[in-house]
Design a protein around this nucleic acid. Structure first.
Lengths: 200, 200
DNA sequence: AGCTATATAAGACATTTGTCCTATCGCTAA
DNA sequence: TTAGCGATAGGACAAATGTCTTATATAGCT
């Protein structure tokens, strides 16, 4: 027996396949082959394909929380933590160029399918939004923390999108640099930004 | 008979359905119902589903070129033209919130499917990239025109993505405002940006 | 009217899909 | 050893999909 239970194996294999191929394009046959079980046997572990999706979203939520906790424990300063968020694009650059941002692509796919789980899936984005907002709060930007969080989230997702579209590593690296510059500039002159945050 | 040929009707109906539901999730049955023909009859007009996709991409390319020509003829100044590009997000905000950016979502879907047409589809983004680059060239930024173009493209796609994810109109409007601010700031101090463009 | 080319309908076809059922395997506890 | 139960295999099933074939309708021309 392997270390993970078969159910966990199914979830993590589906996690990867949903990211690489998309949810709708991933069939039970694909997952069955990946975890080496017969196709008809899924319904012992999961009652439907949708319930696998739910499990995958739960797994991703847990992984996201773990990631954020890691950043918090490794970086005492909020600025540095936000830097970790930006650098995530570089750490995952190979995957991002090939498959895009895992959070964004799942959200857009489920939105188009009008899938019941789309609300739950958007929680994946909300987790980062909330976390970033808290970091900006720690920097003293209470009134515009959410705006700043969304701005950074927006830019990171845009960078992932164009990197995926054009397949150019350099584009991703350029945008990451610009986000760091923006953060640095912002931290440097917090006084100017309290009234109307000049994110430009 | 209607004004458009049946073949054109199929293409424009597919264009809309591919945007609203995604390419893979749109079946011949869906298109057949939309244009009121029988399902088995497609192969008189198109030899495969992929060839419909090719036709849709061609249509979108033509529409994009037309859009860019319109902006050029209505706005003599390059700054104003770039402003038109940014405002496109507001003009299409209802659709964008529901279905995301038509260009980006098609690209990411085809990338995941590893579809043969993904290269052709990325031309849709390239058209805007090239056009924006030319506008920045007209502003005297020859050396960093492509970087500026990609930066703006990235931010617009990011804004579309988060608007689609969170379904919040305000987010889109905020990001649009920030892009205008960025453009304004950039135009105001072109001298500072010639060496190292401070997009932050 | 009759002929021809274009256009459309209707359905067959194999394949794949998600779902569900049943039989069997292998382990553990009595 | 045997009974019981969790786990798995294998296949049945209807529905849907892309594809292809054949027959019919329609319009224009002679």
């Amino acid at each position: 027996m392997s270390e993970l239970s078969k159910k966990q194996q199914i979830v993590s294999a589906s996690d990867l396949l949903f990211y690489n191929q998309g949810y709708a394009a991933t069939s039970f046959a694909d997952i069955a082959e990946a975890v080496q079980i017969s196709r008809g046997n899924f319904y012992y572990h999961f009652k439907s394909k949708d319930s696998i999706l739910d499990a995958v979203i739960s797994l991703r939520l847990a992984n996201s929380h773990k990631l954020l906790r890691d950043w918090e424990s490794h970086s005492p300063a909020a600025t540095e933590r936000i830097g970790c968020f930006i650098n995530r694009l570089l750490v995952k650059q190979t995957d991002i160029i090939r498959y895009g941002c895992p959070v964004a692509t799942l959200n857009t796919e489920l939105a188009k399918l009008n899938h019941p789980a789309k609300t739950t899936a958007s929680m994946l984005s909300t987790v980062f939004r909330t976390w970033l907002r808290r970091q900006f709060c720690l920097l003293g930007e209470k009134s515009s923390a959410d705006l700043l969080a969304m701005h950074l989230l927006s830019r990171s997702q845009g960078a992932a999108t164009i990197a995926n579209t054009f397949g150019e590593q350099k584009l991703l690296q350029q945008e990451v640099q610009l986000m760091h510059d923006w953060l640095y500039t912002y931290i440097k002159f917090p006084a100017e930004n309290t009234a109307t945050p000049s994110l430009a």
